[in-house]
Nucleic acid binder design. Sequence first.
DNA 1: CCGTATCCATTCCGATACTG
DNA 2: CAGTATCGGAATGGATACGG
Lengths: 156, 156
Amino acid sequence: MQGKKTELSESDCAIARSLDVIGDWWSLLIVRDARSGKRRFSEFQRNLGLAKNILTTRLKKLVEREILEMAPASDGSAFKEYVLTEKGEKLFVVIVALWQWGEQTCFEPGEMRFTLADNELGETLAPLEVRTQSGRKLGALDFRMIEREIASESKS
Amino acid sequence: MQGKKTELSESDCAIARSLDVIGDWWSLLIVRDARSGKRRFSEFQRNLGLAKNILTTRLKKLVEREILEMAPASDGSAFKEYVLTEKGEKLFVVIVALWQWGEQTCFEPGEMRFTLADNELGETLAPLEVRTQSGRKLGALDFRMIEREIASESKS
DNA sequence: CCGTATCCATTCCGATACTG
DNA sequence: CAGTATCGGAATGGATACGG
């Protein structure tokens, strides 16, 4: 984030690349707010309580990386709004994963205050599960990274 | 990570709390390596290519936050090893989420090199899916955070 | 209202040197 | 091997003042 890690951003590791994009303190929180419908500079600023120059920096980076894109204001004003791209929307899985981990491990028993629920019926979310293609559920240590040997989807 | 955001770490938001723990550049990569079986200081250092003092700081923080714990060396040497706690192991869902997002969006078409596969049969992992308790699959915008109204699990 | 520019404190990072 | 100590540079972060 700060110094360099330029090498790591160019790493083969998808995690390293992801972290290069959203691995700083504010970016994912901005995505969280954008996902929940916030669009305006001042909405982010007020809600997150961060300095305006930092917000500017983050928004620019997120637009550069194609997580957000600028759109004309929906209320007809002259200003722009920031909306998630498709790439940005896909981060919702990461958001849910972080959310669930945080709720499980970062709160005292009586302390939890919010939860995630679906818009339609208000049903709470099920814990994410890691499964193989065939549906077997995996634990934390049950998988590893391998050199790509994915069955080619087409045989020319 | 840097300045303060002390307020946000104390936030009600589980994401903010999670990010306070693993929201910096190196921590999650250390967890990634620990999950894949790395235990020794030098293994992390060599593999990640970060400065030793930074690694020291990160390991300390991760031990403090109970993501890692110290264990006597398995080879009988006088040194310690770092192994994931249960809390730390639970981060594997976050790791998978970031991995999958990175692979989907941060690589050029011909560029992917690694993939995640289960240890037993070498089967690749299925994309994570966000579902409600009843099993309905949700998209990026289909849920929101609400004040906790979870049905109490016990009625005293 | 939406930023940009500037200033300053803190932190992070990398490199190096040093200890046990 | 496993750190600790220190240094300097870069980036982050907060606050504020300023322009469109």
